[in-house]
């Protein structure tokens, strides 16, 4: 570790740290509300009869929606764990830097997903206002049949 690096030994030890699996319930109502919040009128997300007659046979999730956790935890807990370490490293503010999604199968209302998340990488950069730490988190989503439906890579920026 170099002098003044934001990637402290404490943070370095968190690379690879995984969440407890989170069980997510995909409900029609939650899908509808999510699509409505985007302002996306696509009937595949909201019209049950329409979706039944489509190739999906059921209402599907807009990209990026994976239902609601049956119990809070997982990523939020992981963020809680890292929050203190980031504060001690001198980069207490966290911004959402972006996201990469890869979709393998449609997610339908009624699905029960299991997500697994982990810290994949920390990278440091000197920004205009000082140290910036780029934190990459990887999450995989499996459906009730054990099939991989999606992968997400999220970048958090701590500064």
């Amino acid at each position: 570790m170099t002098e003044g690096s934001a990637i402290t030994d404490e943070l370095r030890s968190m690379i690879g740290m995984a969440t407890e699996p989170v069980i997510m319930e995909v409900e029609r109502g939650a899908i509808r509300r999510y699509a409505d919040a985007i302002g996306d009128p696509n009937p595949l997300f909201s019209d049950v009869e329409y979706a039944r007659n489509s190739r999906y046979g059921e209402v599907i999730c807009p990209p990026g929606f994976f239902g609601w956790p049956l119990k809070r935890g997982g990523m939020m807990e992981l963020l809680g764990t890292i929050g203190g370490a980031l504060f001690r490293a001198g980069v207490p503010r966290i911004l959402d830097g972006g996201v990469d999604y890869e979709f393998f199968l449609p997610i339908r209302a009624g699905d029960i997903l299991t997500s697994h998340g982990k810290f994949a990488d920390f990278r440091e950069r000197e920004g205009r206002t000082g140290k910036m730490l780029f934190i990459t988190m990887e999450t995989t989503y499996l459906n009730q049949n054990g099939d991989l439906v999606a992968k997400a890579r999220s970048t958090l920026i701590a500064l």
């Binding site: 489509s54 999604y101 890869e102 970048t155």
Partner: peptide
Amino acid sequence: AQLMTDWIGEGGTLKKISVQH
């Protein structure tokens, strides 16, 4: 994502999307 799904229509599939905020 809506930009893409509107464009590709119901028969198309969004496979990957990457966005930097």
